[in-house]
Amino acid sequence: MTTASATPRHSHEQHSQAPGYAVHKADHLARLNKIEGQIRGVSRMVTDDRYCIDVLTQISAASRALQEVALGLLDDHVRGCVTNAARTDPAQAEEKFEELTDTLRRALRL
């Protein structure tokens, strides 16, 4: 079942400017590639019947790494997209603030 809150209301296609993370894109991609390797490692651990706690420890590390990427993207969004909208277009700024609140609500499961 799909809900409206599960589908982002806004996308880069709707905006002509570069995404807020453009400056840090290479850093984000490097971290995501590292996380991808961690996930492959977890899969190998399960394949190799490694000890449960060791697998869970690696899953926890990968989850934290993903959360760090998410926080970096959020920071870029606030410093770029939201700040730019607040400086240039009050209506768009209000839209960005609502979008940010919705995103945080989903992330925090409120």
Rank of each mutant, 00 (worst) to 15 (best):
D54M: 08
Q67N: 14
D54T: 02
R64H: 13
A61F: 02
K34E: 14
Q17K: 07
S16H: 09
V69G: 06
D75W: 10
L56E: 02
L71W: 04
Q17I: 08
D49F: 07
A30E: 10
A26K: 05
I35R: 00
S16T: 04
S16G: 12
K25N: 07
R44F: 14
H28G: 00
L73S: 08
V55Y: 01
Q58S: 11
H24T: 13
R50V: 01
L74T: 13
V69S: 05
G41T: 11
R40T: 13
Q17T: 11
H77T: 00
V55W: 06
L56S: 01
H24W: 09
A65W: 00
H24V: 09
R44G: 13
L56C: 11
H77A: 00
E36K: 02
N33F: 08
A22D: 07
R44T: 15
D76K: 01
M45G: 14
Q38I: 14
Y51P: 03
I39A: 07
Y51A: 02
S63I: 02
N33S: 11
Q38L: 14
Q38S: 14
T47A: 15
L71V: 05
A30Y: 02
Q67S: 14
L73R: 06
A61K: 01
E68V: 08
P19N: 05
L71I: 01
D48H: 05
I59T: 02
L32A: 06
Q67E: 13
I35L: 02
R44C: 10
Y51I: 01
L73Q: 07
Q38C: 10
K34P: 11
R40Y: 13
I53V: 13
G41L: 06
A70G: 03
